[in-house]
């Protein structure tokens, strides 16, 4: 037992030195286990496909162009929703963060509407807009806005008052304070908000595609569910996991770190 512990500690040190490889290594035994369980037919083949079948299915779907097309649809919807969410969320967050009256009037409403949650809007949206892009965009925008508003407001309030005072005593106008102090000061928080918002928004998209869907990864998965075919479902899950991993770990997290750490605004982890 203690020998195993030592080997593991050794691996821990090695993993710290090679983080990129270490992020992939743990998936090897998982895939092997998956393979074994599938090959032993512990569960019916249709319910529990093996890795080979999934890879094969992946190749077929890609070759037919279905997967790329659906992926494009999903990413396009997410991008559109995120852009609208930022365009509305950041100004709203600035208003709530800067103005006491706006904060008093809007904060409870923001909390309440956030609590209702994106997915609960779906039935009403379907009645209003039918099955289509408007409904899905609305759901994503709705989901992205709240974390962006919360974090923007938090960022604005976390700016040291001395920085605003310093800018004013150097001759900055109100607009200049907003542009030169408030926005850059809140930027790391805005990025955090966007990151959280996209995390929720992306799940909302899947739900919307499952329920509303005519295309997209979520639709593909649920369509496969109706046909009782597990292969496409597993492909969908893997694609979703990888996609978010790439977006989050390679795009959003580095931007968040670059702003926060360079400036020394995020001293914590």
């Amino acid at each position: 037992m203690s020998q195993l512990g030592q080997v593991l500690e050794q691996y821990g040190r090695w993993a710290a030195r090679w983080p990129t490889i270490a992020a992939l290594v743990p998936f090897l035994p998982i895939v092997a286990l998956w393979w074994g369980v599938a090959a032993a037919e512990v569960f019916p083949r249709a319910f529990f496909p093996g890795p080979l079948e999934v890879v094969n299915g992946f190749a077929v779907l890609t070759y037919k162009g279905i997967l790329p097309a659906y992926l494009e649809d999903s990413i396009g919807r997410l991008a559109l929703g995120a852009a609208c969410g930022i365009a509305i969320g950041v100004p709203l967050g600035l208003l709530v963060g800067l103005n006491r009256a706006a904060h008093t009037a809007l904060w409870p409403l923001v909390l309440f509407f956030q609590a209702i949650g994106d997915i609960a809007w779906l039935p009403l949206l379907l009645i209003w807009f039918g099955f289509g892009l408007t409904t899905m965009t609305f759901v994503i925008v709705y989901t992205v806005i709240f974390p962006v508003v919360f974090n923007t407001a938090l960022g604005v309030r976390s700016i040291a008052p001395e920085l605003v005072r310093a800018a004013l005593s150097l001759g900055a106008s109100r607009i200049a304070v907003l542009r030169e102090v408030i926005l850059p000061g809140a930027l790391p928080n805005i990025m955090t908000g966007l990151r959280n918002g996209l995390g929720y928004g992306w799940r909302a998209l899947i739900a919307a595609e499952i329920i509303v869907g005519t295309s997209g990864i979520g639709f593909m998965m649920f369509d496969a569910r109706r046909a009782g075919s597990a292969v496409e479902i597993v492909i969908g899950m893997i694609v979703l996991g990888l996609l978010w991993y790439v977006v989050d770990a390679w795009i959003l997290a580095p931007i968040e770190r670059a702003t926060g750490q360079r400036w020394g605004l995020i001293a914590r982890s």
């Binding site: 080997v7 500690e9 821990g12 040190r13 993993a15 270490a22 743990p26 998936f27 989050d248």
Partner: peptide, 18 residues
Amino acid sequence: NSGVSALLTPLFRFFSVL
């Protein structure tokens, strides 16, 4: 254990994404 943590962190991250 830092090794166990290094092994499981990527897995848990992947599955919390889903």
